[in-house]
Simulated assay, not measured.
Amino acid sequence: MPIPEDVSGFELDKGVQQELQSLPKGLAEDVGKNLVMVARLIDEDPEGAYGYSRVALRLASRVAAVREAAGFAAYANQKYSEALAEFRAARRMTGNVELWPVMADCERGLGRPEKALDMAGAPEVQKLDKAGQVEMRLVAAGARRDMGQLDAAIVTLQSPELASSSVQPWTARLRYAYADALLAAGREDEAREWFAKAVESDKDGSTDASDRLAELDGVEFVDAFDESESEGAEDGAAPAQADDERRDEQDQ
């Protein structure tokens, strides 16, 4: 697959670059560039990211960072079985537990929420950092909802991190998930309160909390572009009609 000229491979995290040093120099460069493309495209063009991940995997399947990137690319394309296999391979290579939450979410994607809940209660969760533990809580709550256990999902999300007034990278998503669970349980007033709190903490627009809040408030958005086009068409019709009338008068 084509690699843009501005991609060097040095855009990668230093840790990943160190992993690639186990490969011959030319191969390391090729793999690195493909990994950069995975990271660049995974949000806006997941299919494209998946294609580059397959190239990197073909070139260096024994590098943990490659297996991890392949896992996330497959995950972004809802290829949960494939993603889980790649994440497991990366974990075997490194011994790290940081992929535990996304592995559990793959189990959800495969229709096995009970397995995801088992993973949420495993000893590995205690080894996760705070961000990882919050992610695991989100996955566990999602599994509860998959099983129709809305009240249990709400309780799962209730935590010191949710109650905290400080804003962390995970705060907006946690508050959003809590609001969404409340709304699903028919607790609309509480849901509105928590969607508002999610908006306050969502500085980079990682959720659509503002849209959900507006929807609860009954706000309807009008496409200003379409409206202006319509007005323009009406404004344009008047001069044309006036010209026709003037020509008629001159003919008379």
Score class of each variant (00 low, 15 high):
L182R: 01
R40E: 01
E11Q: 10
R247D: 14
S206M: 14
K127T: 09
D217I: 00
S166I: 11
Q241V: 14
K79I: 05
M136Q: 09
S53E: 07
Q158C: 03
A240N: 00
Q241G: 04
Q250K: 10
D6T: 07
A141T: 08
G205L: 04
A209Y: 00
A90M: 08
Y178D: 01
S228D: 05
K33W: 03
L57M: 13
R175D: 09
Y178I: 00
V125D: 11
E249Q: 12
E220K: 09
E135W: 02
K33Q: 03
E190H: 03
D202L: 03
S22C: 11
M136S: 01
A185H: 06
E5K: 09
V36N: 08
F225T: 12
E229I: 07
Q21G: 13
A74Q: 11
T156L: 04
M103W: 10
Q126L: 13
G236N: 12
D202T: 03
D146E: 10
K115C: 11
A70T: 05
P239S: 07
A238I: 10
R58G: 15
A214I: 03
A140S: 08
G142F: 04
L174A: 04
E124R: 06
E215A: 13
K130M: 13
G71Q: 09
D243Q: 07
R92N: 13
D129G: 12
R247A: 12
S81N: 13
A238D: 11
D129Q: 15
A64T: 12
L128H: 11
A177E: 12
A240V: 02
L128W: 10
R88N: 14
P239W: 08
R112D: 07
A131F: 10
P4L: 12
A131G: 13
A120D: 01
D180N: 11
A153L: 05
A74P: 06
A242C: 05
E245H: 01
D226P: 06
A233D: 08
R67I: 01
S8E: 13
F10N: 13
D151V: 08
G232Q: 04
P101L: 04
A209D: 00
Y176S: 14
A28P: 04
L216M: 12
S165Q: 13
M119K: 02
W194S: 00
S81Y: 11
R108F: 03
Y176K: 11
M136I: 03
A64I: 12
G142I: 00
I154G: 05
G142E: 01
D243V: 02
D251E: 15
A70Q: 01
P4S: 15
S230P: 04
A242S: 08
A198M: 00
P2N: 01
L183H: 10
R58M: 14
G15S: 13
